[in-house]
Amino acid sequence: MSMAFNPERWKPAALLPHEEAHDGALVFVVAVLCFLACATAIFAMSADRAAQGWANQLQGSATVIIRTKGSESPDMAASRAAEALAGTPGVAQALVLERAKAEALLEPWLGKDGIIEDLPVPRLVTVELDPTNPASAKALDNALKAAGVDATVDDHSLWMQDIIHAGQIARIAAVSLFTLMALAAASVIAFATRAGLSARHDVVEIMHLTGATDSFIANLFQTRFAAMAALAGFLGGGAAAVVAAAIRLLGGGYGLIPVLPIRWLDLLVTLPSPLIAGLVAAIAARVTALGLIKAMP
């Protein structure tokens, strides 16, 4: 009864009624979107790192294929080529690949017993370039020509372009997916705001007619949905971090699969998830609410 009510201890009630059933479903949907967005970001970072690693490996070396001329033996031609290349600026080391290793490279195509003794297996020279000032393919070619060696320099540029291209595609795909999920989350929030305003039109109308500004009413929806989305972002981002950590633990230092080398620091990308989700929700809810309120006189 009234004896229990002390106006001095009164705390204002929430102006918008709680709708727990709807709120739970909304949190779940946005959490799933946040999980997918964070997972995309983590995997994109890993893929980018893998591509970068491969590109660095290829960028730091070159392969020279030796063709013999006249009576010179392949081994001698390869030795002369390695010697000429070793003295070229920008080359750290040039080594002749032994016949056995060259044959091993052909095994996938010819099989172990398919290489006959007389097969003219091309001799290869592997060149390790100076990482600070790598020699260009043209400089290597000029050095070989000056030494009178007939050879082809493969600086892996063809492969590297493919890898760089693949890395770019992975980045673009990740950014696109991330944007798509942010837009999906914003659409879900906008839909929920519209539904909330519609379901609580009576409350909104009373506040409107009692002197609430458009901004005040929009703030109520903005705050509510931002808080819900921030919670969803925390749950979704946390789940993505747990999954990524599990992959990292299961796969050791290189992750579950070598093409996705996840690092512990990658998990930090999930940290801004609540903030970003809350921000997207706040903007979506505010824009939607203001649009609907402005339809009132």
Partner: peptide
Amino acid sequence: SVFDNVALPMRL
């Protein structure tokens, strides 16, 4: 509550 209803104009 009754009290909250009456407080609405002041809060707004």
